[in-house]
Design a protein around this nucleic acid. Structure first.
Length: 757
DNA sequence: GAGCACTGC
């Protein structure tokens, strides 16, 4: 194909930044052949180039290959090209490469398209949610692992792929873990179908599937063992040496230690930027302030240090500051959360300061509660962090703890699948035809409690039948929607309550990161600015108001001006109102996608207009499990014991472990009966009050929670609320809540709430 | 009176 030929790649219709890149691509035809030669040279100089033949041989010999490639080995960009050249794409087959993150899938695809000298979306393309740059001629396809999972719902044999490469498998995201289990099954199914001569995929004869698992961790054993002692090969990386420094004693105040280290580096070390890993927004903002304070005390010549914060919730314009080179003569000090560990690579870093801590999410399936806790990093995380100093030249890493502490760290971070709610994973697996979830061959099995809890949740949402099968149509509809199952159910209910339009907006807004961005010490300012959206009924309607205000603004603009300009107006509006425009755009993308889905499903798209009572009643019908009532002291009680009791008698659990599948269904039935019994005893001493205990002590000890200060109802403290998020940080907080009438609970969810008159 | 990081036909 001629250099820079015109393909059919269109600028992204979502108005994402990606549109810019396609323009850059079109301009590439102006580049001359020296540029091409430079690329060829760069490719040849990669460590992986010398082992091309050997690698291809290994892929031919082994159906599963583990490739351990250190940072900078070029494995992600080169191996797919090697495979293509070795004719692994014969008969129109595709090489698929999965990544845990969108940005990686998109940027690597662009790079490889450049290297191949083709238009992106032709031979080389990518596909991520809301953004597909592939065509019928795409043979090397980069995508997110979540997206390949979704593809498997449509094509269970993944029949268009000859090779699937799972990249960054060491990160062990939920999607990667589920995908590995699934690919193992698909591979067996495809080789069996060839053996017995069955035809798959509408008459196309299936062929064996090659799997390549790529990992950057030095220990390939876990993967190799999981895939039946699969062959593992190791590829040298190209990382510059990083000198490690430890403190002599443990630090009592690691922020102060970080600060001292920053200034030691700044005043005593050669030029080069500093990257400091901190745990969250609050810490980052505190350290930024302290640096600026101390700088004023230094002699003028030494003041050229520029602190730059970066964390996920920061608006993107401010995030970009981390990538811009420091002004001449200045040294940048990037204050980052673990966003800088893997997600983004900031150029120019020569020094890393690592206090050895990370804020991580964990999940308690029993309480259905998430928490954010600060934990020591794992060894592999510490290595990943120090590696950030050796990307462009030799570097230094200062670990703010003694060396013997390093030895005590866990080898690797606990896989995500062991610390999250599994309802979604289970729904997906069920839809993929995996009946026995407890028996599914996970690379690392989640706890039985976590699986059973999520099965129960799905059962109670009506997604599973008594036989533990996906219900028709509700279960299948829920599996199809890329949403938290409880939100999918809310949409299905909303069509009955004639408020699907409102629920679509709500669910889209609840599915994104926080809509409001609150800088430190601006709490009151934010409250004043957002007053015009606030609804006395609560956060759900407030979110609808924000969304509709943004839509109105855009609709007015589209009459007289172009799209780019109206986007700019929206961003300005967001800034004025302390709204995170990235989150809002994301919510609009989700809204568009989900709206399409529910239309296809034939759900009734209606609006309740001004009748928000109807909408609030629908919230109760959907989220009745998350109800809480006010206590005399202003805290709230959330009856989690009700949910805990489903686990059933312990004797049953013992039998259950012997014969999971059969007992499994039984278990749920029995616990459901048990739940009914409890619901009946769940009565009140005081007239018209819910949740007060009678004789059941377990029920009396519900979780005591507080309304999160970000809620519009924080000061109002209504009697009874429905909420969407329960999280423990400094306290146990509920977020995203709406005031409801407690009588609605008995009316709309009588199976759970009984009341004594 | 307050928020790690990702992701979804």
């Amino acid at each position: 194909m001629p250099w820079g030929s015109r393909g059919n790649h269109q600028p992204n219709a979502n108005g994402n930044d990606n549109g810019k890149f396609s323009n850059a691509n079109r301009n590439r035809k102006n580049y001359s052949s020296p540029w091409k030669q430079k690329i060829a040279q760069q490719r040849k100089s990669l460590p992986i180039a010398s082992v091309e033949k050997r690698l291809i041989e290994e892929v031919r010999k082994n159906d599963i290959l583990i490739i351990v490639g250190e940072t900078g080995s070029g494995k992600t960009t080169q191996i797919p090209q090697f495979l293509f050249d070795a004719e692994f794409c014969r008969d129109g087959k595709v090489i698929g490469i999965t990544q845990p993150r969108r940005v990686a899938a998109v940027t690597v695809a662009k790079r490889v398209a450049d290297e191949c000298g083709v238009e992106l979306g032709q031979k080389v393309g990518y596909s991520v949610r809301f953004d597909d740059s592939t065509s019928n001629s795409t043979r090397i396809k980069y995508m997110t692992d979540g997206l390949l999972l979704r593809e498997a719902l449509l094509d269970p044999y993944l029949s268009k792929y000859s090779v699937i490469i799972v990249d960054e498998a060491h990160e062990r995201t939920v999607h990667t873990d589920v995908l590995l289990g699934l690919l193992k099954r698909v591979q067996v199914a495809r080789s069996n179908s060839i053996g017995d001569g069955r035809n798959l995929n509408n008459g196309n004869k299936s062929s064996p599937l090659k799997l390549i698992i790529m990992s950057a961790s030095l220990d390939a054993r876990t993967f190799s063992e999981y895939f039946g002692d699969a062959k593992a090969v190791h590829i040298q990386g190209r990382q510059f040496p990083v000198d490690l420094f430890y403190t002599r004693f443990p630090e009592t105040d690691y922020l102060d230690a970080a600060l001292i280290t920053i200034f030691q580096v700044h005043l005593g070390e050669a030029p080069g930027d500093i990257l400091v890993f901190l745990t969250g927004q609050e810490e980052i903002e505190a350290v930024e302030r302290l640096i600026n304070e101390r700088l004023t005390k230094l002699p003028e010549g030494s003041q050229k240090l520029l602190p730059v914060p970066i964390f996920a919730a920061l608006p993107s314009e401010q995030q970009m500051r981390a990538f811009a080179p420091a002004p001449s003569g200045f040294r940048k000090v990037i204050l980052a959360t673990n966003i800088a560990e893997t997600s983004i690579t900031i150029p120019g870093i020569k020094y890393v300061i690592d206090p050895g801590l990370v804020k991580a999410r964990s999940y308690d399936p029993g309480k259905g509660m998430e928490s954010l806790i600060v934990l020591p990093t794992s060894k592999s995380q510490a290595l990943q962090r120090s590696g950030r100093a050796g990307r462009e030249g030799p570097g230094k890493c200062f670990r703010l703890y003694p060396e013997n502490e390093f030895e005590k760290l866990e080898d690797s971070t606990m896989p995500e699948i062991k610390r999250c709610n599994l309802a979604n994973v289970i729904l997906q697996l069920k839809a993929l035809g995996v009946d026995d979830i407890l028996g599914f061959d996970f690379i690392e099995k989640p706890s039985r409690t976590a699986i059973v809890k999520s099965l129960e949740q799905l059962f109670l949402l009506g997604a599973l039948t008594d036989e533990c099968q996906l219900s028709d149509p509700v279960g299948w509809q829920m599996a199809r929607l890329p949403l938290d199952p409880i939100y999918s159910k809310a949409l299905i209910l909303a069509s009955e309550y004639n408020c699907l339009e409102e629920m679509l907006i709500t669910v889209a807004m609840l599915s994104v990161e926080s809509i409001f961005y609150t800088p430190r010490d601006k709490y009151e300012e934010v409250r004043t600015a957002t007053k015009c959206f606030a609804s006395p009924e609560g956060d759900h309607i407030t979110l609808i108001n924000v969304y509709r205000a943004a839509t109105d603004l855009l609709e007015k603009r589209t009459m007289d001006t172009n799209k780019a300009k109206s986007e700019k107006v929206l961003r300005k509006w967001c800034k004025e109102n302390f709204i995170n425009s990235r989150s809002l755009r994301h919510a609009r993308d989700i809204h568009r996608q989900i709206r399409g889905h529910v239309q296809q499903m034939g759900l009734k798209l209606a609006s309740c207009g001004d009748d928000m009572l109807q909408f609030r009643r629908c919230l109760v019908a959907s989220f009745f499990l998350n109800a809480a009532v006010k206590q005399p002291d202003g805290t709230y009680r959330y009856p989690t014991q009700l949910r805990n009791s489903w686990a059933g008698p312990s004797g049953l659990l013992a039998i259950y472990s012997l014969c999971s599948k059969v007992i499994h269904t039984l278990q749920i039935k029995i616990s459901f009966c048990y739940l009914f019994l409890i619901a009946f005893t769940f009565t009140s001493k005081k007239k018209n009050t819910l949740f007060a205990s009678s004789h059941n002590r377990a029920l009396a000890s519900g979780e005591v929670v507080q309304i999160h200060p970000s809620s519009v109802l924080f000061r109002k403290k209504p009697e009874c609320i429905i909420f969407n998020e329960l999280i423990q940080t400094s306290n146990k907080f509920v977020r995203n809540l709406t005031r409801v009438d407690n009588l609605w609970l008995t009316e709309l969810a009588p199976q759970f709430y009984a009341m004594q008159n």
